Computed example of a mutant assay.
Amino acid sequence: MREAWRWFGPNDPVSIADIRQTGATDIVSALHTIPTGEVWPVEQIQAHKELIEKDNTPQCSLVWSVVESIAVHEDIKLGRENNQRYVDAWITSMENLAKCGIKTICYNFMPVIDWTRTDLKFQLPNGGYALRFDQQKFAAFDLYILKRENAEADYSDDELRQAKLTLLAMSEDEKALLTKNIIAGLPGKMTDGYTIDNFRNMLENYKDITKDILRKNLFSFLAQVLPKAEQLGVKLAIHPDDPPRDMLGLPRIICTSEDLDILFSALPSPANGITLCAGTYGSRPDNNLPLMAKVYGSRIHFAHLRGVCRDKNEQRSFYEAEHLSSDVDMVGVISALLAEEKSRDVGETSHEIFIRPDHGHQILDDINKQGNPGYSCIGRLKGLAEIRGVIKALKSVA
């Protein structure tokens, strides 16, 4: 497997020099300064690539290998009549990346919001900090802060009562922070942050968009992108919806094995693949991650190896756990990925799967540093070391 590390560019507190010390060989990155829907020019791709690779030596080199992500414009997700120019721009960006030798692209099709958490600094018993999604806090936001129209219909009487109690227990500062965490944008997300009013307006755009319509719009987009990806040798790796369920009245369509079966049945192109995000899929108890890694092995072009621990009494709530201590059988997942690699033609240059540690805890010296939530250095390094140990152990007994 190819050990990768996500880098957010020159403003990332974790520098390329820092990353070299982790032992990772590949970089996952994107051109975050280019607005959604615009073309990524070759010159800017090459300049970003040069920032990553300029100090390479034979003994210590890094390669920009995976893009995460080229954002898909909302007009494509909505199926609007003017969306063709955004599809064309996406394809041109893919072509330009291929010209620069970057041929694995992670992307998602989540409406309005990207990955969502209610707490960006949830304290753990050991004193470290993790990301957390709290369903009661999220319901309190949806019902009583956002005041989404007809939101009550999505909740039971008990959930309505619990959400109200949760809201009453929060200070004004806590309400403001919760709102910011949900709608103001997270590091790495490829859409702009929102104000509460334009967030409501964005949600309103989707009032008539059902799961079937959103899936149709995804298939229409991919029907145009995949043939060109095949010609270029590019592998597309769709990331699951995070959390993987409908929320805020928005449909989600990449959440379960059933969703993936529908996707691959409709579009069997070998370029049509997935990012196996163990933590995202694992936040649903009905997703069996080792089995998914086995069943969809040939479709896995990229993997986010992280785990979550779900609350016993509210399975929709979870926190980002240590990489090997969670509700996800990480050893089983890695074993399935290694078996998949072994089954691939070793003559192919793309037989190895790109993996990266994801959403590490904020621990030790990083606690007092400003960093991107979930992307502190030491926590991810710990996760990478644990993953590396599992891989070495499994290979030694294979």
Rank of each mutant, 00 (worst) to 15 (best):
K228I: 15
C277M: 07
N313E: 14
Q224T: 10
I91Y: 06
A98H: 08
S326T: 05
L78Y: 05
K392S: 15
D88C: 08
V112N: 00
W7H: 10
G282Q: 07
G360R: 03
A339R: 06
N96M: 01
T280F: 04
M330I: 15
G307Q: 04
C100T: 02
G307N: 08
R306H: 08
S343C: 08
K235D: 09
R2M: 12
H359I: 03
P13R: 05
P357A: 01
A98M: 09
P35L: 03
T179S: 12
G127W: 08
Y86P: 01
I274M: 06
F199M: 08
P270L: 08
I355D: 03
L120E: 10
D212S: 14
G185I: 00
Y155K: 03
S257Q: 13
F302C: 11
I19K: 04
D197N: 13
F199N: 03
P13Y: 04
E348Q: 13
Y296Q: 05
V328S: 07
Y86L: 04
C100E: 03
D241H: 06
T104L: 08
L62R: 02
D134A: 10
P10E: 14
T104D: 04
E149I: 12
K211Q: 13
P285L: 12
E172D: 15
L394M: 08
Y319P: 01
K369W: 00
T210K: 07
K164D: 15
E204C: 10
V346D: 13
Q370T: 13
G360W: 01
H48N: 11
P290I: 04
A71S: 14
A237Q: 10
D327P: 06
F219L: 14
P268Q: 04
L267C: 07
W7C: 05
A169T: 12
A17M: 11
N368V: 11
K342Q: 13
L324W: 00
A339Q: 14
G127I: 11
T25L: 00
M94G: 00
F221K: 00
L186P: 02
L250A: 09
D259S: 04
K382Y: 14
G297C: 08
G79S: 09
P58T: 09
S69K: 02
M1R: 05
W90C: 04
T116K: 07
M247W: 10
E74G: 02
D142S: 15
I16M: 08
T349V: 11
K211R: 15
L97V: 01
V87W: 02
I363C: 09
K382L: 15
P10C: 05
R284I: 07
D311I: 02
V72T: 11
R306Y: 00
F109R: 01
I76A: 06
I183F: 02
R252L: 07
I145D: 03
G101D: 06
K147F: 03
C106K: 10
I52S: 03
S298G: 04
V333S: 05
V225Q: 06
R245G: 02
